[in-house]
C-alpha cells in the first residue's frame, strides 16, 4: 500500500464511526520501491492530499525527514520538494502491517501490499 492510497482511506464504513480519518499505520514490513518521478502527476495530486495525514503516515512508516509542515502554491515549482513528496506518496510501500481506525481501534490488515478493508458481517 502506498501513502497516496492511504491518504484517501477512512474507516467511516464501521457502524457508529464518524471520524475514521486518518487511519494510523502499524507497519510490519515497509519497503522503498523506486517509481519514475513524474512532477506533473505529483503537482496534480497535491491539492487533493491531506497534508497532515501524509506527514503522519510517513512518520509512522519511519520516514520523517523531508516533508515540510505546509506546502503553498509558491512551492509547486520546487523540484526538490516535489521529489520528496513523490517519494512519500508513491515509493513508500507498506508490504505487511495494519491500518487502525483512530476512533474504534478496529484493525484492517495489509498483506502482500494489499489492504483488506472488508468488515465482518456483524459490523455492517
Amino acid at each position: 500500500m502506498k501513502l497516496l492510497t492511504h491518504n484517501f482511506l477512512t474507516s467511516n464504513i464501521i457502524k457508529g464511526v464518524k471520524n475514521g480519518y486518518p487511519l494510523s499505520i502499524l507497519p510490519g514490513k515497509v519497503e522503498m520501491k523506486e517509481v519514475d518521478f513524474n512532477p506533473e502527476f505529483i503537482t496534480r495530486m497535491l491539492p487533493k492530499i491531506e497534508w497532515s495525514a501524509l506527514q503522519k503516515a510517513a512518520k509512522e512508516c519511519g520516514f520523517e525527514e523531508g516533508l515540510p509542515d505546509t506546502v503553498g502554491e509558491e512551492q509547486l515549482g520546487d523540484t526538490d520538494l516535489l521529489k520528496r513528496v513523490h517519494k512519500a506518496l508513491l515509493e513508500i510501500e507498506v508490504v505487511e502491517g495494519k491500518l487502525v481506525c483512530p476512533e474504534s481501534g478496529r484493525e484492517f490488515p495489509i498483506n502482500n501490499g494489499i489492504p483488506n478493508m472488508l468488515l465482518n458481517e456483524d459490523e455492517v
Binding site: 500500500m1 477512512t10 474507516s11 467511516n12 464504513i13 475514521g20 494489499i114 489492504p115 472488508l118 468488515l119
Partner: peptide, 11 residues
C-alpha cells in the same frame, strides 16, 4: 485493495 464497492464511506 480488498474492499466492498458498495461502502463508499471508505473513501
Amino acid at each position: 485493495m480488498v474492499a466492498d464497492a458498495s461502502r463508499h464511506a471508505m473513501w
